[in-house]
Simulated scan of single mutants.
Amino acid sequence: MTYTAWILLTASLVGLSCGIIGVFLILRRMAMMADAISHTVLLGIVTAYLITRELSGVHMLVGAIIAGLLTAVLVQWFHSRGVQQDASIGVVFTTLFAIGVILIATQVGNVHLDVQHALMGEITFLPWNTIHLPVIGDIPKATLMLIVVFLVVLAFIIAFYKEWKITTFDAGLAASLGIPVVLMHYVFMTLVSITTVASFDAVGAIMVVAMLITPAAAAYLWTDRLSVMLVLSGAFGVISAIGGYYLAVWIDTSISGSMAFSTGILFLVSFIFSPNHGLMSRVVKPYTTTE
């Protein structure tokens, strides 16, 4: 594959994985949790590096997952003790992210791990950091990790589709049916953490947040069916990734920033033209009703 093709494939995998996971974040009204986890995984990555002194490997994934779960546990713990959920998220993620930034500034030193890299990523370098696989040949490490994560996420969504659906829309009913609601919640948070850290090195925190929230929010405007929403959200993520890349090439700017901007454009189009919830439908409906 060409250099451009690897970048497009990697970014599309980010859009696809984040788009699918983002649907459940939107429906569970946990959109800000995506922002929180996408920032607090920095603490897990830095801690894993400080322990191993290596910038790649499974330990990075483990560290990020632990940081993501720690975020979810702390938010839930504060919320259960009377703190509003949005306030809990704000306190936890800013504190943990700040600790990660301080550790980078004071402990990491001259390593390819800094706040700018954490926020924006560097997708243009990915095709050069490869691993050789039998039959397949050389493949970028980030792309391989994203392929594995996408398959894991897809397998969990399909295998427990009914459970995800019930716990998302009616947790009380799910509990009465014997579904372990709390366990499902933390499994979901684990999936969010895995998806976030797999995307983190490639595209940075800003695009991860954009891909987790905006395609799902756009898909929500087009349909009321969960299965269709999952497909649309994943498709919107891929379209944003590809469109954002060519926009960045055209105006010579940040690729990740352009991809995040493309998600906003897609949402704006959906907000205006979606048949049920769009701005145009609200203008047209009164006239059709009168006629």
Rank of each mutant, 00 (worst) to 15 (best):
Leu173Gln: 10
Val238Ile: 15
Ala171Leu: 05
Arg81Val: 06
Asp224Lys: 13
Trp164Lys: 01
Gly22Val: 07
Tyr246Asp: 04
Phe160Gly: 03
Tyr246Leu: 03
Ile194Gln: 12
Val152Leu: 12
Gly234Asn: 04
Gly63Val: 14
Gly22Ala: 10
Leu177Val: 01
Ala205Cys: 15
Val148Lys: 01
Phe160Trp: 01
Ser80Val: 03
Phe200Gln: 04
Ile26Phe: 11
Ala174Glu: 06
Gly178Val: 01
Met189Pro: 07
Ala260Met: 00
Ile99Leu: 15
Val181Ser: 11
Gln107Arg: 15
Ala198Leu: 07
Leu173Asn: 05
Ser281Val: 09
Met211Leu: 12
Gly178Leu: 02
Ile89Ala: 13
Val75Asp: 07
Ala67Ile: 11
Gly257Trp: 05
Val73Phe: 08
Ile20Met: 13
Pro215Trp: 02
Trp222Gly: 13
Met33Leu: 14
Val238Gln: 04
Leu133Trp: 04
Leu226Glu: 00
Ala48Gln: 11
Thr95Cys: 13
Val197Phe: 15
Ile123Asn: 02
Ile26Lys: 08
Gly22Arg: 04
Leu232Lys: 07
Ile37Arg: 02
Val249Glu: 11
Leu133Ala: 00
Val181Glu: 06
Thr253Glu: 03
Gly68Arg: 01
Ala155Cys: 03
Met145Lys: 11
Asp252Lys: 08
Tyr287Asp: 03
Ser227His: 02
Leu96Trp: 06
Thr168Val: 09
Gly109Cys: 08
Thr143Ala: 09
Ala198Gly: 14
Ala219Trp: 00
His117Gln: 09
Phe78Trp: 14
His185Trp: 07
Ala202Val: 09
Pro180Lys: 07
Ala202Tyr: 09
Ile206Trp: 02
Thr290Phe: 14
Ile147Val: 12
Val135Ser: 06
Asn129Ile: 13
Ile272Thr: 15
Val73Ala: 10
Leu74Trp: 06
Val231Pro: 02
Leu183Asp: 10
Arg29Trp: 04
Thr214Trp: 04
Phe236Gln: 04
Gly204Glu: 12
Ala67Thr: 10
Leu221Trp: 02
Thr190Ser: 14
Leu74Gln: 02
Thr40Asp: 05
Met280Val: 15
Arg53Thr: 12
Ile158Met: 00
Ser12Phe: 01
Leu8Gln: 04
Lys141Thr: 10
Leu126Phe: 12
Ala31Gln: 02
Thr223Asp: 13
Pro140Phe: 04
Val283Ala: 11
Thr289Tyr: 12
Gly19His: 07
Thr124Val: 14
Val197Gly: 14
Ile37Gly: 08
Phe169Ile: 08
Val203Tyr: 05
Gln84Pro: 03
His112Lys: 15
Ala105Val: 01
Leu43Cys: 06
Met184His: 08
Ala219Arg: 05
